[in-house]
Design a protein around this nucleic acid. Sequence first.
DNA 1: TAGATTGTTAATCGATTAACAATC
DNA 2: TAGATTGTTAATCGATTAACAATC
Lengths: 217, 217
Amino acid sequence: MLDEKGISKAVIARLPRYYRYLGELIEHKVERISSNELSDLMKVTASQIRQDLNNFGGFGQQGYGYNVRYLYNEIGRILGLDRTHTMIIIGAGHLGQALANYVKFEKRGFKIIGIFDVDPKLKGKSMRDIKIQMMSELPQFLKIHRVDIATLTIPKDSAREVADLLVNNGVKAIWNFAHIDLNLVLPKEVIVENVHLSESLMCLSYNLTHAEGMQKN
Amino acid sequence: MLDEKGISKAVIARLPRYYRYLGELIEHKVERISSNELSDLMKVTASQIRQDLNNFGGFGQQGYGYNVRYLYNEIGRILGLDRTHTMIIIGAGHLGQALANYVKFEKRGFKIIGIFDVDPKLKGKSMRDIKIQMMSELPQFLKIHRVDIATLTIPKDSAREVADLLVNNGVKAIWNFAHIDLNLVLPKEVIVENVHLSESLMCLSYNLTHAEGMQKN
DNA sequence: TAGATTGTTAATCGATTAACAATC
DNA sequence: TAGATTGTTAATCGATTAACAATC
């Protein structure tokens, strides 16, 4: 396996999309594909596909192209989808529920082992066979269970405090839906992936407002 | 107002974050800020801040910096947050409910005027005073109401068909949560903003898997 | 006025695309 | 073998950063 260090964020962000298209090709029983055919399908340059993949190793064969299933598995491995990641969800509101109920995550190896909320009304209730626990039970839970990823679907005001608690109890990665840049306030070795839905909607609004004069890039 | 055409996606994507920080500064009663102070706060270069803002006009003053509230309002205007956008939600599952219940969208001018689903069990039920309607009622609804944005929180398999229906009935922008690149299958003048949550989670997984050898950029 | 800080041009850096030799 | 297509180097393009004159 070649060195996978120093890969740019842009490349990494494209991998899941390659993975998705390859998965669909498998569903359609396609066995091999050239960078040119994939380029047509995904509307990116063949050059970019080859460059991106060669960051991680030579997965293709001259004169043949890429074996779809092999490449799919390799990208899955690069993305860490060949392992199981344990996950907890903090915040059992609608968004937390939406994520907890999203079955496909389980299929990709993200196993939800706990759901937490501050609301006493939710005490004892369950989501997908997982009992909702109170936040006060979280520290003890973290002492017993290894948690790879904590998903934060809580209001921004409590996000920092909760994130600190998680990090102090050994959580190494946070999937953050609160409107705060947790990466700036947590130790830099903690992995934070921010999902800012309102910012996505604002970009849509920008494009809608400035329609007709299509922006480049 | 200066020309706002030809702004790169990277710049646009940063505007909501400036907007958020400026909003917080207003909450903290900060009246003025220099690109250098904002740079410290947001961990981007002062140069980038000045370059980004100057794509849209000179909002600052030499020797003074930027007036926080003025800049906030200007960026809001650039993002189209000074108008009201009508929005419908297609798919009243957990994610659709999460978005429908997110009060802040309303505050920013995104007004939900309809929620649709295929599930007859949801018929007659309401979310935030908005009655859930059946998909069969959608075409008629679109003839009566101007819809700026359609939010798609439905499975990927029906997404394309529904998107076509929306576009054929005059919807110009789609906020897409289904795992399909609708921008590639719809007419190019239709504005599509994709939110692929599973791809975000995969990036997190990548970083977790390759931790210690931190990636650049 | 002097000091501060912008707006903007120029320099650098990195990412994307093109080209082609290597090779299946 | 001949044709196809990769892996990889080189060229281009665009985005970021640095520098500084303009000016409040």
